[in-house]
């Protein structure tokens, strides 16, 4: 069923691509292999007139398959909005988002829901788990909702990696914050999604638990070839990524490859200085 949707979706996108071809350059075959998610000319505008705010102003970004990308920026820079638009939780005012080949900005609600279920994984800052379900039930929830059979081997691998094998029968209220976030990560990966979006996954955690969660995300990219896009404001967290995008006032300002905490901090200082000079 879900696989069917993917096919139909892909086909629809292909047809659309052909029809609207003049507007948007066709994605070449090499790119299709390597790009997991692509945002193109994204605008997100709130309000109108005096109170008009552009949370995103013409952002174009690609997120390669098997890569761990961090999005950084000060509060109100639009980084969460970008993540929500890329994940199909929010609709951009203008622009397009492609998950693989599929333009998700035009998908109806139901297909978008199924897309999130089958091809996207989520980790939020807090309240990630359904309190009535056990850790294991939470992990398999997207699969259960889709009515899909789980790949037991993959599931075992993921569970081994989060290191909570003995706590799977516990309810979220019986787990620590760090453990809860690791369970959330495992859930995000359980369906082998095209991409995992993490919105400040360590925002509520102490440094030790943060390190556990980030190490897990890092491993899932390095060892299992998953794609992760993470929003954070913590330079240390960003240093786990392969690449960091810097956002300010809704615009993409800078990019850093193979970051360290120091280089991230330096870039942020530079951006602050530029902003201060501009202001």
């Amino acid at each position: 069923m879900a696989a069917g949707w993917r096919l139909v979706g892909g086909w629809l996108a292909a047809v659309r691509g052909r029809v609207g071809g003049a507007k948007e350059p066709r994605v070449d075959s090499v790119r299709r292999m390597s790009v997991a998610v692509r945002g193109s000319g994204l605008w997100k505008r709130y309000g109108s007139g005096q109170t008009q705010v552009d949370a995103l102003a013409d952002v174009t970004a690609e997120f390669g398959q098997g890569r761990f990308t961090a999005i950084m920026g000060p509060s109100g820079s639009g980084k969460s909005t970008l993540l929500h638009c890329l994940a199909g939780l929010d609709k951009p005012t203008a622009g397009q988002v492609f998950v693989g080949d599929l333009d998700i900005t035009r998908l109806p609600e139901k297909q978008l829901t199924h897309l999130r279920r089958d091809r996207i994984g989520f980790v939020f800052q807090a309240f990630n788990l359904v309190p009535t379900l056990t850790a294991l039930e939470n992990i398999t929830l997207p699969l259960d909702l889709a009515g899909r059979k789980f790949d037991q081997e993959w599931l075992d691998t993921v569970i081994d990696t989060i290191g909570l094998k003995d706590r799977l029968g516990h309810k979220p209220s019986e787990l620590s914050g760090g453990q809860q976030q690791r369970v959330a990560c495992a859930r995000a990966l359980a369906a082998r999604p095209d991409v995992v979006f993490a919105d400040e996954p360590t925002g509520n955690l102490d440094s030790r638990s943060s390190a556990d969660v980030l190490a897990f995300l890092h491993r899932s990219v390095r060892d299992f070839g998953q794609t992760v896009v993470m929003v954070t404001h913590d330079p240390t967290a960003a240093s786990y990524a392969d690449r960091v995008l810097f956002l300010a006032d809704g615009e993409l300002r800078s990019e850093l490859l193979d970051p360290t905490a120091e280089s991230v901090l330096d870039t942020m200082k530079q951006l602050d200085a530029t902003a201060a000079a501009a202001g």
């Binding site: 279920r117 089958d118 929830l141 889709a146």
Partner: peptide, 16 residues
């Protein structure tokens, strides 16, 4: 509300 939002985000459709 938050729990329902989470469920919807991770792929529960409206009929479900």
């Amino acid at each position: 509300t938050r729990e329902i939002g989470l469920l919807r985000a991770i792929g529960m459709d409206r009929p479900q």
